[in-house]
Write a protein that binds this DNA or RNA. Structure first.
Length: 189
DNA sequence: GAGCCGATATTCT
DNA sequence: GAATATCGGCTCC
């Protein structure tokens, strides 16, 4: 898994779709199948790391599998997983997932029963991810956030969302078709 | 279902 | 002082 992540984000993106992302916060475990990501590279004008290392984006320069959590629009948390070798600031923004475990916990955290994790801010809220987890290693089996292999999914690329630079790079990867999963039926989109 | 708008923190100009 | 890797609630079809 670590070697998989030690590549540029646009290559890792499609492989991450279908993987299982789980968190254990305050003894409560939740998990989703990743269905939507965006890639950001070190020489990418739209990336937080483009202007060099700062206190906020330091985790982006860490080893592959490092979690980078930042606050978006002052209100929401967004989570990334660092790719590429240490020192190279390439990362995947995790945008959405399908709940497969701990659904009740997500509903409580979100304060509603639908649209649990179909957006970047919603995903972090449903999983209980906050800035406290910035810098965690997602490949640590005993860590609070874990990334595990899953089923490969069909996918397509689209332009990235909410940015103004390098809009022509189609580095948003969206899973298409059904996510086969145990448990309650996943919500649609 | 699509489209507008306010909330709010951190960074950069 | 402006911009931003967003969301939820509101309106108006």
């Amino acid at each position: 898994m670590r070697s998989l992540l030690t590549r540029p984000a646009p290559e890792v993106g499609p492989a991450i779709l279908g993987c299982v992302l789980s968190t254990t916060i305050d003894g409560e475990t939740t998990a989703v199948v990743i269905t939507e990501v965006e890639a950001y590279t070190s020489d990418d004008p739209a990336s937080h790391s483009f202007r060099g290392r700062t206190t906020r984006n330091a985790s982006m320069f860490g080893m592959p599998g490092t979690l980078y959590v930042y606050r978006s629009y002052g209100i929401h948390w967004c989570m990334n997983v660092t790719t590429s070798p240490e020192g190279e600031a390439s990362a995947l923004l995790l945008r959405a997932g399908t709940p497969i475990a701990g659904r009740e916990v997500m509903v409580r955290r979100r304060g509603r029963g639908d649209h649990l994790a179909d957006g970047p801010g919603k995903l972090t809220q449903a999983l209980g991810v906050t800035g406290d987890l910035d810098g965690a290693d997602v490949l640590d089996d005993h860590g609070p956030v874990r990334l595990e292999p899953g089923r490969a999914l069909a996918w397509e690329t689209t332009p990235r969302i909410g940015i103004s630079r390098a809009v022509d790079e189609h580095w948003r990867f969206v899973a298409t078709g059904e996510v086969s999963s145990p448990g309650p039926a996943p919500e649609g989109r």
